[in-house]
Amino acid sequence: MGDLWLLLLLPLSLAAFHGVKGCLECDPKFIEEVKSLLGKLVPPEVPGRTHMLERQMKEMIRLSFKVSHRDKMLRVLAVQKVVDLRTWLKIELDKLSKEKWKGVFILQGRLLDIRKNLDSKLEKLLKKFSEVACSEDCVVTEGPILDCWTCLRITSRCFRGEYCEEDDPKKAESREIGLFLILLAEGVILGGVLLLFHFCISHQRKMKAIRRSLKTYLEKKLEELMGIKDEKEKDFRGRE
């Protein structure tokens, strides 16, 4: 039993040792490149340079972790999109390094703007990719796909289950049953309304027919009564 628990806990301990990743953190070379580019932004004589660079490096790299862990549907992304994001970030940092030094606070503000743009771009890409990969039609995606949580490449082109907020099959089944019952109830209500409408129309037609028949009957009776009255008047005059 102890060996079994050891086998079960080993993957968790390894995950804790390596740390949970984000899309941009899966390539160690990229991290080194960002570290090098950030180092070019701050002159060596600036006080507290090392501490500031470490903090900026941590915030820049961990940003993708924060975005991809907001929602389980923001977990996977095409590798090419990840490469494009990394390239964009390196270009932005390289352009910033070529600008004239204006002080620590100005630099921190510029880096904050870059992180905000990166956050927005990454979230949009993850949402768009998830909508495609988890859709009913499941448009086939091209190229390898990256699991941002594990840094593993996925061969599947369409996703279900945990990648699409369907962790518990019973919950998904319950939602489908609930939706079916709602549609069934709406169908019954609609059918009842149509039946009532048909009954009202039929009843209205019958009532019109009855009124016409009654009107015709009364007109005939009235004519008969008028005829009888005329005959009586003629008889009365003849006797006189």
Rank of each mutant, 00 (worst) to 15 (best):
F197R: 12
K98Y: 03
V188T: 08
E224W: 15
D84H: 09
L9C: 06
W88K: 13
K171D: 06
R49Q: 07
F65H: 14
K29H: 13
S68K: 02
K40C: 02
G192M: 11
L7P: 00
I61K: 00
G103A: 07
K127T: 04
W88M: 03
M57G: 04
P144E: 07
D235T: 11
E131L: 12
L38T: 01
P28V: 11
C148D: 01
L4A: 15
L24C: 03
L89K: 01
H198R: 10
E131H: 14
R205P: 00
L8Y: 07
E231L: 15
F199I: 06
I210S: 05
Q108F: 04
G178H: 11
R211L: 14
K221G: 09
C200N: 13
M60G: 02
L107Y: 03
K90W: 03
K58N: 14
L53P: 00
L118I: 01
T87E: 09
L214K: 15
V139K: 09
Q80V: 05
K58E: 12
D94L: 09
V79K: 13
L63A: 01
K72N: 13
L125D: 02
D84C: 03
A16Y: 07
K58I: 04
E166S: 13
V139T: 12
T87H: 09
L214T: 11
K21M: 06
E25S: 13
Y217S: 10
S97E: 03
I145S: 00
A172K: 15
R55I: 06
